[in-house]
Nucleic acid binder design. Structure first.
Lengths: 217, 217
DNA sequence: GTCTATAGCTGGATAGAC
DNA sequence: GTCTATCCAGCTATAGAC
């Protein structure tokens, strides 16, 4: 990868963090990258193409950096802790708030939809096996759609990132509350056999009754 | 409220839905509102001011429309169903995807932060009493920070809206999985006294142990 | 591959007629 | 209050020198 191309990819992420999707342009990107504005078009054709490429490359890099940590997660609360660490680190250097900006842009720019969906999927692909592992044998796993849950976690994380940008105190509080939810799930998993059977019975009964609640496969 | 002012407020929401925060301008707003471009500045001074005003007014209107339904919610899954209905209706007419756009814009436009935070708070103020009511007597309520949970729900909803724009199938699946989580919580609430005590004991033990998990008050 | 220069357009914002 | 006209900044994209 040529140096200039990489500088443009990095500069795109920096510019997205500083100016948001509303303030992005070949000029703001080039300024952040420290290169000439015309090189955006020489190397990537259009600004949107560069945005898509930066989204893919940047997310892949970040995901690779956290892959190891995900495999070491041993509980739902540890998963939340990794999410917290990721959030703090990425707020400074990274790619998650960038992903939120690109998701917002993709809502009305169809050409951004595919790259952003793929980038989010990279995170989902990390989260999903962790959940499969953590919830193995849990009553929840018997009725819940784990891939769906992984998607909810990834999407919810993006929503919390955006919320954090306008209300840091509220966002901290929200994360704390989610930790309590994780505690509940873990508590159910740690129940004795009798109570556990009761929960399981209750869950499968409810799941059978409710059509729209069944996981989509 | 003068007719033109209202048309501009409505036109702002339409323009945000059609072009996103990246494509918003006095001209696109005026076109959507069917008025002259200069009137944006006459009535609101700047585009950002108009964005803030539209955010407040539009959200207040939508929240009022759903307030009644929130009071009628009798279970967590009914709350999710209201969220679903809201999502479907707002995707066509509304204000939630607009809120996502404004949140994205607010990340790098400090003047948008206050209005968007207030708008999100309007939704939180609806969700919070519902959760208080639904979780009264639940083991979860004893350790969880309900206001925090309401914030997580609102922020997560925004994240799901953004995700839906790039992967509709994945988003549907995510919502289905959340419904299963609601089933779990309800199942715990419906347990007999013995099993219930076991869960409660397990939860408070874990809650005491984990510093960062305690609700912020 | 990288630069300067520029065409052509869209944007925020204002002046001034009505 | 609303319109036309306009200034000027910033934008995408390309042409052409180096």
């Amino acid at each position: 990868m040529s140096d200039t191309k990489q500088r443009l990819l990095d500069g795109t992420l920096t510019a997205l963090r500083e100016h948001g999707i509303a303030g992005i342009s070949a000029r703001t990107i080039a300024a952040a990258a420290g290169v000439n504005q015309a090189l955006v078009f020489y190397h990537f054709g259009t600004v949107d193409e560069l945005l898509g490429a930066a989204c893919r490359a940047g997310t892949a890099q970040r995901v690779a950096r956290y892959a190891q940590r995900f495999t070491e997660v041993g509980s739902l609360r540890e998963l939340l802790a990794v999410g917290q660490a990721l959030h703090v680190a990425e707020r400074e250097l990274g790619n998650v708030s960038v992903l939120a900006q690109l998701l917002a842009g993709a809502q009305s720019e169809p050409r951004l939809a595919a790259p952003t969906a793929e980038a989010l999927q990279l995170w989902v692909d990390e989260i999903e096996p962790v959940l499969v592992r953590l919830l193995a044998g849990s009553p929840l796993a018997e009725v819940a759609d784990i891939p769906g849950l992984a998607r909810a976690v990834a999407a919810g994380f993006v929503g919390l990132e955006l919320y954090e940008g306008v209300d840091a105190v509220g966002a901290t509080r929200a994360v704390g509350a989610l930790e309590q939810l994780a505690v509940l799930v873990e508590a159910v998993d740690d129940l004795g056999p009798v109570a556990r059977r009761a929960v399981r019975a209750r869950i499968s009964r409810t799941a059978r009754r409710s059509g729209p609640g069944r996981p989509v496969r």
